[in-house]
Design a protein around this nucleic acid. Structure first.
Lengths: 193, 193
DNA sequence: CCTATCATGTAATCCGTTACATGATTAT
DNA sequence: ATAATCATGTAACGGATTACATGATAGG
């Protein structure tokens, strides 16, 4: 039996706090774990079907109307999840960023870095937007205010989201430098560190 | 005609510096653009086939022996690439990180954060390794040394790789804090910023 | 020469995305 | 009531990964 995909564990992980419909899972993914492991809603149906086949999840459907499903963890599902959570962690991070790709392929000579600058500005805007999203989520998640040693999150969940936020900060900083410096004037280790 | 995938543009982009075999492209992807848009070698064959169908790439095969292919950009391919490089950039970054996923799902209570600590330590090691990789690549790419205002890269390629490097630095920093603080003692905005 | 490693290709399968279709609910 | 939006499901297609198979080359 081939091992489960990370997406499968997302489903298992979310179901641990109780039964849910695929739609509800999707909502939760969007505002939390989707920031570092995203996939479309339709995928939840596919994953759920696989998990049911393996006996890790049960599925009940309404008889009438919308015929919606309710998914729930089985005992085996809970165990599988627990094993994954405590097992060895091999898989590396992978980042897919079309902006960096485009940056990479820009011709150095192309109109004195004008293209690079525009790309960089668009990226700054996009990452700022994502930053704002994180801020909203983290406030809602119960951060205190920002003075001094400052607020501390108390759950692993919050820590994971905090990473996402720092990533966006990094991206904003990076692309700002690129926009300012134009093509090819970037200090690889950042400024003032 | 549905638009090309980013992976397709990777192939086009690399072919711009001249014809190459799929294998050679793979090598180059591994040490450069693969850091922010990775895919397996077999995918190159698939992409190449699609690109040939669209007339963006030509393919020649040896008659004998290994029957290897040589891929080359057509005029149309060059144009398509140029259009992409200068067109609007919408797609957002997506990060897939199994480590963060696991962190997210850790039970706060689970043996006083022991699991979290071990996870974090493994992540630190993995990201340190990746950092070392970047350092090797960037040295080879022609960085100067590290004093003062310091070295400046002169190509967009180097800038893109520099981002990857900063990302790894961030990850090392983050997971180190998690390892030190244990489960749920993480300042979302970092320390000393 | 033999073995290990590099280089190359293909196919099967699985995963993921897009697109579509329709049932419920809320606002005007 | 009607339109808009939220909630829900499915199918088809295309993309990505794994596994396998084999040709060349270099080191011993």
């Amino acid at each position: 039996m081939p091992s489960l995909s990370a997406s499968a564990y997302v489903v298992l992980g979310l179901l641990e706090s109780g039964p849910a419909t695929p739609y509800a899972l999707d909502r939760e993914i969007q505002r939390s774990v989707g920031h570092f492991w995203d996939f479309p809603r339709s995928q939840i149906y596919a994953e759920a079907a696989r998990l049911v086949r393996r006996g890790l999840v049960t599925e009940e459907r309404e008889a009438a109307g919308r015929r919606r499903r309710t998914l729930a963890l089985t005992r085996a599902g809970r165990d599988t999840l627990a094993a994954w959570l405590t097992g060895p962690a091999e898989a590396a991070t992978d980042v897919r960023d079309e902006g960096l790709l485009r940056l990479y392929f820009q011709q150095d000579a192309a109109s004195d870095g004008e293209g690079v600058r525009r790309l960089a500005q668009a990226q700054v805007a996009a990452h700022r937007a994502k930053l704002a999203e994180y801020e909203a989520i983290l406030v809602w998640a119960g951060a205190g205010d920002s003075a001094g040693v400052g607020p501390r999150f108390e759950t692993p969940q919050a820590a994971a989201l905090a990473f996402g936020m720092r990533f966006e900060e990094l991206a904003v900083e990076f692309w700002t430098e690129v926009a300012e410096g134009g093509a090819g004037v970037v200090d690889p280790r950042g400024r003032g560190r």
